[in-house]
């Protein structure tokens, strides 16, 4: 989706900054925002770029760096931790052959930690893009990753 289309969806008012950034970033293949785009957004909303920069670097879902096509976020807070989250994470690391914070060579996957996803009753939990996967086991994770790898559009 073009930036302009996203901008047109929202009132031209500065309080929509975060909504616009979230919406637009979602449509980007590599889930990142560039300075050029942010400048356009700042101009559109008539706000300072220093403010936009401040917002983008404050919220953890925004990124100035390109990421993999699929961003895998693994929760590592206490409820997941006590439910064997480490095993799940290790499986992911091995399968993808990357560490947390890294992207696979084929730019398919980025592995990250996330703060609690609010699904602690179904721990351990991870998210790929907007989809949450719960009650994970190493085997489940293997199947999920295999499924993503198999997708054509990826």
């Amino acid at each position: 989706m073009q930036l302009k289309e996203v901008l047109d969806k929202y009132p031209q008012s500065e309080d929509y900054l975060i909504e616009i950034l979230m919406d637009y970033q979602k449509h980007k293949m590599h889930h990142d925002l560039t300075e050029e785009e942010l400048k356009t957004i700042a101009k559109h909303l008539d706000i300072k770029e220093s403010r936009v920069s401040s917002v983008v670097t404050f919220y953890s879902l925004f990124s100035l760096e390109p990421k993999g096509r699929h961003v895998i976020q693994v929760c590592h807070d206490v409820p997941c931790h006590v439910n064997n989250q480490t095993a799940v994470l290790n499986t992911l690391k091995t399968m993808l052959n990357i560490d947390v914070g890294q992207t696979t060579d084929d730019e398919m996957f980025t592995l990250e930690y996330t703060s609690c996803l609010g699904a602690c009753d179904k721990a351990p939990v991870m998210r790929i893009g907007e989809k949450t996967f719960m009650n994970l086991t190493s085997n489940k994770v293997k199947a999920i990753i295999a499924e993503y790898r198999g997708r054509k559009h990826a």
Binding site: E14, L17, I18, I47, S54, V55, F58, L61, F62
Partner: peptide
């Protein structure tokens, strides 16, 4: 509806108000 963008502290009332105004959650 306003959505967050990855910040826990935005749950604090004034941080949330700042965020609703399109700012960082301080």
């Amino acid at each position: 509806i306003r959505t967050g963008a990855g910040s826990y502290v935005v749950g604090e009332e004034f941080a949330m108000i700042e965020s609703i105004e399109g700012k960082s959650g301080r």
